[in-house]
Design a protein around this nucleic acid. Structure first.
Lengths: 107, 107
DNA sequence: TAGTAATATTGCAATATTACGATATAATGT
DNA sequence: ACATTATATCGTAATATTGCAATATTACTA
């Protein structure tokens, strides 16, 4: 991020930024889109689909997961990732509330 | 961004990521929030409000502006930034459409 | 025209992110 | 137990972002 001064912002603002950061890389948008399209997913699928190496996909999945947007269950060897609907809805609510307020107040 | 492979993604996905990137830093969220709260704004205000140096604020404003989220008019010496309501609504629409599709399809 | 104030640009240092090869871990099948 | 397969972690190189001091630019004013 560069020399960061994140500590000065309100929790609400930091939360918005953190959510947006998840979607700020096309690989993660593509991953979320692909998983939700499939309803369920295996990581190896993603490697073929997205065109990035397996560790890179794993890393992106971790970011998405830490934001609370994934549910992962092991089914045999492969890990089945699903979108955490509640998490995604929560993210949507936070962003749309921010947008709502901003657009209603602006000139 | 690190070694980047942005070229492989669909225009829709890249657009989502680009919009999200604007909101992915708390300073920019705070700037957008402050400007919309005030309806109109002078950059020097932001320096006091956000607690970053003037060049840094100017840089962030440029990012927000290039995403089409600002309207700037010179009124005297100071530049009056307003939120571009259409741009913000467009951003909101794109994101909420993505969320809508994702949540409706996921398990 | 010189001085002042507001904003933009430049250059650079500090930090964060991204990508991937190598390797570790975990579960399954033989 | 050993090989195989799927995923995670580690280490590191390449790149991007952030922040600011110094400086330039622009508009106003005396």
């Amino acid at each position: 991020m560069g020399a960061s001064k994140v500590e000065f912002y309100s929790p609400e603002i930091i939360e918005i930024a953190n959510i947006a950061k998840v979607f700020s890389h096309p690989a993660r948008v593509a991953i979320i889109k692909h998983i939700s399209d499939q309803n369920t997913c295996i990581c190896n699928d993603l490697v073929d689909e997205i065109g990035l190496a397996q560790p890179t996909i794993s890393q992106h999945l971790d970011v998405i997961n830490k934001a609370g947007l994934l549910k992962g269950d092991y089914k045999g060897i492969s890990k089945c990732y699903c979108i955490n609907k509640k998490g995604l809805q929560n993210a949507q609510a936070l962003l749309s509330q921010f947008f709502q307020t901003a657009t209603s107040k602006c000139c």
